[in-house]
Every structure is written in C-alpha cells, then in structure tokens.
Design a protein around this nucleic acid. Structure first.
Lengths: 237, 237
DNA sequence: CTATATTTGTACGTATGTATG
DNA sequence: CCATACATACGTACAAATATA
C-alpha cells in the first residue's frame, strides 16, 4: 500500500483516505481548480495516488460533506468544485442543537444580541439597491404567507440581506446560520394569521427606518421584531 | 441491495450509505445510546442492514466527521458515541474562511459586536466560582507567555468561560467557534512582549470589573481589549 | 514477558447501477 | 436503444490494537 519497503519509512498511522482528502483539499485551497471545474475522476485519482478507488471515494465523500465539491453520477458526472456554502456549518450546528438541547428561545436571545446592532450599522452603509431587494423579499414573504406555502427556507432572508450590507463575510455566515437553524426549528410550528401579519409589518418598519438611514430606530425595530416573535413562540411552545 | 423485488417499490436514488448514516444518527438523537456507549461494529451493522461493510464504513465515517462518534481500531475498538463538540462546526468554518477570505479584522469586528454585551450580561449572572476560574486561566496564560509556549489553543479560553456563564448553549458554541478560528488565524503570528503584557492586563481589568459586578465597565474593558488586539494585528499584518 | 489468537477498522479489486449522448 | 464514462456497492484480504495463553 504505502512504502514500508524503506527502513524507517514514514509512520503510517493516519488513514490513507484522510491523507488523500487533505491533499485534494489543499489543492482546491491553493486554487489549482476554479469553481465549477471538474477534478479528476475516482479512477484517475486512484491511479495517481496509487491507492484503491474506495479510498478515493471516501476522501471525495469527505470533501463533499465539507461543501467543497459536489459529486454527480453518470457519463458527464464526476466531482466539481463548489463555491463554499454554509450548508456544512449549518448541518454541524444542527447536530449540536440536538445534542445540546438548544431552544428557540436560545436562538432568539442570540439574535437579540447581534441583529439590532447590525441594523444600526447597516443604516450607514446600506444602498438603495439593497433596500429595494429587502422590499422585494418582504413582498415575496407576503405571497408565501397568503398562499399557505410553508417554504420559508427561501434564501437569503431579509435578516441575512441586512447583515450582508456590512461586507463582513464572517458576520454574514453567522447570521445566515442563525436564520437557518431558526427556520429549521420553526418548521414544525404553525403561525397564526395575526402573527404573520405582525411579522410583515415589523419587517416593513425595519425597512422604513433603514430607508431613512436612522440606525437607532432600525435597531429598535429589529429588537421589537425578534422579541415579539420570541414571546409568541414562548406562548405557543 | 434494497427491495427492487416489489412492483413499484421505493425509488432508490439516495445513496445507501447516506440512508444508513441517517438511521444511525436518528438512533443516537433518540437516545438509544448513551455518551460513551459502543454502537454495533461494522460487521454487525452490515448484517443488520443487509449491506456491505464498506457501506457501513462510509456511514460511520460521516458520523465521525459530524462529531457524533469516535472510531477506534483494535480488539477493544469500535464506534463510541461522543458528546457533541464544536470541532465539526469549527472545521466547516475554517473551510469557509479559506474560501471567503475572512481576515483577522473580520473576526475582530464580529467579536467587538457580541463580546462586550455578553460581558455586560455576564456581570449580573457570574458566580464567585466562575471568577476564580477566570483568574486561574489568566495565570495559566501568563505562564504560557513566559515559557514561550505557543500552545494558546488551551480550551476553554477566558472569553468562552464568560459566555458560558449566561447558560445559553448556542451562544457558547458561537463564542467558542469565534475564539477557535481567531486562534487558528493567529497561529502563524508572533506577538511582541509588550502586546503579551497588555493582553494580560486587559484580561485582568475585565475580570476586576466582573468581580465588582459592574456590567458596563466590564463591557467597555472588553471592547478596549478586542480593539487593542485588532489594532495591533493591523499594524503587524 | 513474549508469542499468538481474536476482534476490530481499513483498503483492495471487481461487479453493478446510473445518467448522458 | 446502445455505448460510454462515471459513481457506488459488494465480498475479500489486510493491518492494527488488544487480550490471552
């Protein structure tokens, strides 16, 4: 398998599939492939690295789970480099939510902590384009509520859009993740008609404040919005 | 493999290893196993599910990556249920950091957003025991600095400890993750002697304010601490 | 204390399923 | 509908870690 033919050859304690995974991961990080590029097939890699197809397969599976590649079957299939998305972070967090018994209130409390100040800062940086997108999104949400469509997972949500205006990718990831696990935890629950109306109005108030570039007001509206949802969830949960 | 012997049997598009992974994951979430418990071996699972060992292997590998189990080799080996830790979240985030070009400044900005208010709230809830642990930790950090030991990854850091006092597991995960990627990004950098002294003193000031249960003061000290580190990193980076 | 048996995960080569042109 | 290029699953062989003789 690996060179044991040399005296004092390298210690082989790590899994071969892990070594392979690291190497390919590094190659992707070092920009040897562009987003959308097809990386070598399982058979090619197996030959290159001198290991079995199963080993390569497991390495690729790991990279897929990390969201670095997407694997497709069939004649035009193979492994394609993805632009990193937050799915892997969210999935890991979801596991922890189960294990650590995180409640919707816990989520709301974290949101209360970070979203109002984000709003305040966003008011200074937000563009007219951004605001238009926010209003569009709220309209779409209205239609979704009206049609009884439970597909709330439509990304990106208003909250993520606001965070995005600050141009800090880490902050965007955090807020996006927060919203995703919030939606995930909410998916069983049924909102009342009144609550849906309230949410839309609260969103609109936040957007109005941002439009006027009034940071403190936007922050306060956001705080009220999240608090309102928090209380509602407490009352029905 | 799976029942294709029935007319109109279930559509088999999903990977078998994925189905197996989900089932075992669910079993763990439903508390069929306790933390530390050994789950069945690859061979046993293969027989139970009627699939090959390789398939089970891949499922277990996925669960290991998610931090739900740890796999050990040897006669007393096998797969053991773990208490979920944040490694999987951190690892996923690290991938994104590479892809999205997250800077130390981005990290500092997020910390500036959430850590001062956490400090303010912690002042109301913190116990004498917590404070003692904080002081112990700062002492250990001092020794580490003196001995030139770069092992800063000693968990949990002061910042995580403070967040923990609030009793919100999600918040703890977020702060822990933040600190881990901060440390990860810092690991190449060499701090000056003066900066190390400053950090220790700033930590001490935060602890003093918490000891007096002065939330606003603790928050302000935390803000100054993170800002100071941020500026320093800017100047040398 | 050393040698060997046993139990476990891990990797291999082959066979099968699947999507495309 | 067939040929092709690919991922995926199978059964077997190997390696590692421990227990036991």
């Amino acid at each position: 398998m690996v060179a044991n033919n040399k005296l004092f050859s390298t210690i082989q304690n790590e899994r071969v599939s892990n070594i392979v995974e690291k190497r390919i991961r590094k190659a992707i990080f070092d920009n040897h492939f562009k987003v959308g590029d097809k990386i070598p097939s399982v058979r090619e890699f197996a030959e290159t690295f001198g290991v079995s197809r199963t080993t390569i397969q497991e390495a690729l599976r790991g990279l897929e789970k990390s969201g670095l590649i997407v694997i497709k079957k069939g004649a035009t299939g193979g492994s394609f480099v993805m632009k990193g998305d937050t799915t892997s972070v969210t999935d890991s967090l979801k596991d922890l939510l189960h294990l650590k018994q995180v409640t919707l209130q816990n989520i709301a409390d974290v949101r209360l902590l970070i979203e109002p100040p984000i709003c305040a800062m966003a008011a200074e940086k937000i563009t007219d384009d951004d605001i238009e997108r926010l209003e569009q999104w709220n309209q779409e949400l209205k239609f979704m509520f009206q049609s009884g469509n439970p597909n709330l997972e439509n990304d990106p949500t208003m909250h993520t859009l606001i965070a995005q205006t600050l141009g800090n990718p880490l902050l965007t990831i955090f807020v996006k993740t927060l919203m995703e696990i919030h939606t995930y935890k909410m998916s069983d629950l049924k909102l009342s008609k009144k609550m849906k109306m309230d949410i839309l109005n609260q969103h609109q108030k936040i957007i109005e404040a941002l439009k006027k570039r009034r940071g403190a007001e936007a922050a306060e509206n956001m705080r009220e919005h999240i608090s309102s949802v928090r209380e509602y969830l407490l009352s029905i949960g």
